[in-house]
Design a protein around this nucleic acid. Structure first.
Lengths: 335, 335
DNA sequence: TTGAAAGCGATACCAA
DNA sequence: TTGGTATCGCTTTCAA
């Protein structure tokens, strides 16, 4: 493989000049630049990433820790990952993918070995053991999610509390007085994954402030699981006229079960979903929904990481405001 | 950060001894080893990945190129990714994730810069422009999928031709004489993604050999898309009594549409799915299915890459035999 | 505007 | 069984 010295020789300049042509960190005369660039192209030269990382103390790689489980919410995860990878590339970084299962050790491994310049960590739990570890690292970190004590670490996420509030408010404005929440699977709550509890808190707040009645349950995203969930919700609150569904995989079964039991959406029962837009559009009824802006959140996470690296700012928390889109699953409650 | 020299000094040995303790590439006396390991632990020493890559000509990173689009087949992709990442870790490698959108340039970039020791590439098209590029790289590559001309490159995949054949054969054994194929979205065929055409070929082979009639169509995985697809299939072959569905996202709509039009599964209409096991189990009817063994394929791809690196063998193609699991969506055709 | 050379932090060869 | 050290390929400071 050609090295920087080979290129320099071929161009009749010193290695440092080649380096500066590549980095643009000092002015180069047009003539020299042209000769160097021609040699680079002719030899198909690529800087050795390891050598570069060693000398510059920058790997140009971001770590992304994703919950690679098959049991939940896969399409949304994939959207975050896609957004992070493509945005990272636009900042000249690559992405090293770790699973959440590696836990804190994985973080110290890739950070300690200087494999990565910064870390982006998804699926943050309320009392996440990884947060103190991240605080101790040399590299900056951005959390996608919100732990109980985010001090000193950057976070970015949808504002799930506002999302829960907004969903209920919308239903209240349509005259609904009794609303039921179909939540994520029980495991999500048990792990303390904070988006679930935050949404629930906003939901409860709105119910209280607006003087409604409510029922709320976690929900397994299988057909039987959804059926059981709805049965329990209606046993608890028989006058329910609207559902807030915060569980992407449960959406199709919810619609199917309502239909099978003779309740039309939206004429008899209203539904507000919290899910990505294309999911809301891909079901038999076009769902009124609050988007999970995975693309924006992922891109913002990368930008924050890059800015942290450039010391453009310190740790900060950014919660994106929810946006509700009215479609065909919500109607006025008559009478 | 502590370096190997710091550790050596603290342990009263030379840097090379520390290196050999870490790599196990030469015998070390128990006493020395203990002292070194104690220093390593005490100082929290981690070898610098870049320095190591520079000196050893090994990054211990695998590139994984995945189709990070949101429009198709997301959960299966995620399974491949998960399997590759976890298996790579078991061979002491990390995974750099690239999107298919980066194309051949992405491959030459990470390979040319020696960021990775080997590449694993998903979603291979019949005449994939990346294959000749991979052939020219210094690093070995493993394709998940099967191009038209795989010479010189390792491939691993489910045997989709055998899968299509098996699905039809199973239906024929149950007395079905007219079968319809609900395929992947048209885009998948247009891109020439080979699994789609290979399955289709096996499907057609079986139909011919067993003397059946058939219709086959691509299918958009939205509710409306599936409805249109089924309508067209039945217009083309009104006597259809069974569906082979090679489109994960279409499964729920297919069942719903059949049910809505008064056809019971399996009493009136049989369905064989090609999909991951948990998808087959998560629908209102437990589906008779042929598993897409994403976990096995991903793990095998990593193992092949590692063996290629160790020069344990040369390029080879491995197609995994399909396994059909009978569940509740297939019944004998009476009369 | 450019060059020379000192690191960066490992590995692995050559000696002992 | 261990040590010394050249080497990997680049960045960046210091000089010119």
């Amino acid at each position: 493989m050609a090295t920087i010295a080979d290129v320099a020789r071929a161009a009749g300049v010193s290695p440092s000049t080649v380096s500066y042509v590549l980095s643009g960190r000092r002015p180069i005369s047009p003539a020299t630049r042209a000769r160097v660039e021609r040699s680079i192209a002719a030899m198909g030269y690529r800087p050795h990433a390891g050598a570069r990382a060693l000398a510059s103390r920058r790997s140009n790689v971001l770590a992304l820790v994703a919950p690679l489980r098959t049991d939940i919410n896969v399409p949304v995860i994939m959207r975050f990952v896609t957004s992070v990878v493509t945005t990272a590339r636009s900042y000249d970084h690559d992405v090293l993918l770790l699973t959440k299962d590696e836990g804190a050790d994985g973080l110290t491994r890739v950070a300690g070995g200087a494999m990565v310049d910064a870390l982006i960590v998804m699926d943050i739990e309320a009392d996440d053991a990884r947060v103190p570890v991240l605080r101790g690292l040399r590299q900056p970190a951005v959390l996608i999610g919100l732990p109980d004590r985010p001090a000193g670490i950057s976070c970015v996420d949808l504002d799930f509390a506002a999302t829960g509030y907004t969903a209920v408010q919308h239903l209240a404005e349509h005259g609904h007085r009794a609303v039921a929440l179909v939540g994520p699977p029980a495991g999500v709550y048990q792990r303390g994954t904070s988006y679930a509890t935050r949404l629930r808190a906003g939901f409860d707040d709105a119910v209280a402030h607006l003087g409604l009645r409510r029922a709320a349950r976690p929900c397994d995203p299988t057909f039987d699981g959804v059926a059981a969930c709805i049965r329990q919700l209606e046993a608890e609150l028989p006058e329910t006229t609207a559902f807030v569904v915060h569980n992407e995989l449960a959406l199709a079964p919810v619609l199917e079960i309502l239909r099978a039991s003779g309740r039309r959406v939206p004429e008899d029962t209203s539904v507000v979903a919290i899910c990505p837009e294309d999911v809301a559009l891909g079901l038999p009824v076009r769902l009124t929904s609050i988007d999970i802006p995975a693309h924006d959140v992922g891109a913002l996470a990368v930008e924050m990481a890059i800015h942290l690296l450039e010391r453009r700012h310190g740790a900060q928390t950014r919660l994106l405001a929810p946006a509700l889109t009215e479609r065909d699953s919500c109607a006025d409650r008559i009478g």
